[in-house]
Design a protein around this nucleic acid. Sequence first.
DNA 1: TAGTTTCATGCAATCGATTACATCGCTGCA
DNA 2: TGCAGCGATGTAATCGATTGCATGAAACTA
Lengths: 346, 346
Amino acid sequence: MKGFAQNSPRIRDVADAAGVSTATVSRALSAPDRVSADTRAIVLKAIEETGYRVNHAARNLRRRQAGGIVVLVPNLANPFFSQILSGITFAMATSGYNVLIADTRQAPNAEHRILDYLHNNRADGLIVLDANLPEDVLSAGDTPNHHPPIVFACEWLDADPRPTVTIDNEEGAKLAIRHLADLGHTRIGHLMGPPDNILTITRAKGARAALAELDLAIRQDWFFDGDFSLASGAAAAHAWLALNDRPTAVFCASDAMACGFIGELHHKGVRVPDEVSVVGFDDIEIAAHFVPSLTTIAQPRALIGETAARKLLALIAEGRENGSATGASDILPVQLVARESSAPPR
Amino acid sequence: MKGFAQNSPRIRDVADAAGVSTATVSRALSAPDRVSADTRAIVLKAIEETGYRVNHAARNLRRRQAGGIVVLVPNLANPFFSQILSGITFAMATSGYNVLIADTRQAPNAEHRILDYLHNNRADGLIVLDANLPEDVLSAGDTPNHHPPIVFACEWLDADPRPTVTIDNEEGAKLAIRHLADLGHTRIGHLMGPPDNILTITRAKGARAALAELDLAIRQDWFFDGDFSLASGAAAAHAWLALNDRPTAVFCASDAMACGFIGELHHKGVRVPDEVSVVGFDDIEIAAHFVPSLTTIAQPRALIGETAARKLLALIAEGRENGSATGASDILPVQLVARESSAPPR
DNA sequence: TAGTTTCATGCAATCGATTACATCGCTGCA
DNA sequence: TGCAGCGATGTAATCGATTGCATGAAACTA
């Protein structure tokens, strides 16, 4: 036995069964209006009877395409991305393209494998959720003709012309700060993401801008370092506790950090929002069920994935016909969701 | 312009550059010891110079394979699965196989597309994380030669001979119940998953067995219905509150439900573990940071994914050589992690 | 030294679907 | 009646890598 693929019917078998040529069968499938209605019916019946399935390898070879798109995820184990993936697969479901996922931070030689994806094999397009890839991997200018279309989602490269799907991060941060100020807080801190990350930078910028608008203090020691993770949120709790002069509210750049922060404070006997108010960012599913439930900036994760996928499909189709690759970018709206973790200061 | 793939070098170009035949180039890549060391070096250099990348469509066509494996996930948006996926992609990274993901509960006509995966195209193997697929889709007996190898992970079909990678669910449930009993609880309830799910059944069975061993009450009204989700945990909180005669501890079949349960009780002013102890199942990342931190049964999710992937690779390789598809199954160990959400009854 | 084996390599068929081009029969118009 | 035009279909080349078989050289055996 050499495998299971042995005796599966080919397009030739269908053609014979239907009494037509393979070309007609092929057309009945991929260009239905190029065959007469009668013939199409006969072919479809023959396909049914033989149990024929197209061989994608052959189709892709002939069409000079890969038949799939690749999603580069910084960390698959991070639940934040699962709903984005869900949106992507949803939008891709009817497209005929496969969805491949690759974890960019995963050994071994991830970099080499990503290059493999980029150089016009394996993928007809890419959705990149990680803008912190090695510089050269994503460099825009070089040999543009050898890259499949790319759409950035969530994260992006500054001053890069390629299309992106993002949310209004700056506005989100402002909403958070204003919300806390509205509650009466005047001493507001910010727990940031990883240093080089564009989201970190943008959200911190928004936070600063809002604080400035409101004439509130912007204190370096109230801007805590983190990396979006639960653990870094817990670590920030210690930093907060160590301060002599503490902010009465902290805006965290991710819900995960907010949960870690609150959880660790709880262990130390500090109550939220009684002693400190907390606002998160993302509105992950657990946010509504956390104790206390988490005030946060909601971003439409599934929609981000869906939008990015549709945009990529459009780019692929466009590139097939002519070369006018438009790089329009979408900015999806964010929304403040007020819950228990934020309250007026004591 | 017709696309980006236009002028990418073919194996012919490499052969010309190296002054050898295409056969030799091909062998230098896929069977290095069939060419002399000298030739191999020359070929590798030529590949480097030309920037050649194999065309996977052509390779797969010739090799009569799909070049990828498919993971069927019941719900991609559920973070529980992301770490399993992470383990799978990790184990697959060096294999040369692509990892495709498909959400089995996603419109439209998901069923049809799954059949597509099953019938020896697109995928050289499947990892199935959802044992509740339509019967006929996964029926074991029919036309076995037309199915690629399948490995079930997490969930499985009862009395199905195909290989599975699971954890010891029954033992996990027993650990949870015994832990609560050790703390002094005698009135213990169980929040279950979706009715037809094999995990629900097995964990409930383990819970019942442990309660029986300990001579504790097994009360129908203390077995709550759920579906593994946060929302169903919150709903169960209302069921618990509605009881006149309440259990002092509840073992939940998933961490998500445990969090939903605790969160909703919190809203109603009921404190955990003061008024009721809670034990979860899964040890998702947030469990350690929840308020209160969650006592739970840890299962090695990344390892499950990794094990399933390796098993599948072995099956694929095996099927290529001879037909002895061994169906050995792995049961990975679980572990109780005691945290704050469980304490002696008042 | 002649015969046999082994190793490295080349030649060319092959995987299965798509599609440019050719063909054929009709319709419609002059 | 004759011919352009059109729609439906067939023929056969093609996509690019792999691999069975053949070949020639080198190494080994008797």
